[in-house]
Amino acid sequence: MTAFDKYLHAVIVRAVDEAREGGSTLVEAHHLLLSIAADQEAVTHQILASVGLDHAGVRDALDREFEHSLSTVGVSLTAYDLPAPSPSAERPKIGASAKLALDRMISSVARKKDLRPPHVLLGVLQAQVGKVPRALARAGIDQAALVARVLQALDDDDGGQ
């Protein structure tokens, strides 16, 4: 296994846990983002930190997106005070949004062996609609600028090789 394979494997395993803990039967793109944010990989960590994002920050942005989306149809999350359900016993499957993110990651390089950790984040950030862009917007983060930072970091890394 290459270093990248190890990283991707760790990200996906953690994303599955994020999905399960969140009571979701599917691993979605935002679970990948949570997982990426929880990883200690230096370059990605630095990119996310440069816009003030860490695991807690991503979680907070996602919660706010959920609350906001419900509020647009007049539903207040604070009106519900049910105990948190026990997490799913089944292993969540990879959902459509996560598949798209991984496909975009692969499409972002000419050869598979060029893949590096920031490409996973890049794949997730290429979504124009859905939970991830909406959550970033709620957190006041310029998604296009964040993508530019990822590309810059990948470029710098190329230069250093």
């Binding site: 997106e65 989306s69 419900l70 647009t72 149809v73 539903v75 609609v129 859905g130 939970k131």
Partner: peptide
């Protein structure tokens, strides 16, 4: 985009 996101959020809720 808001309406679609609301449908997703309601389903999750």
């Amino acid at each position: 985009a808001d309406a679609l996101a609301a449908a997703v959020a309601l389903r999750r809720l």
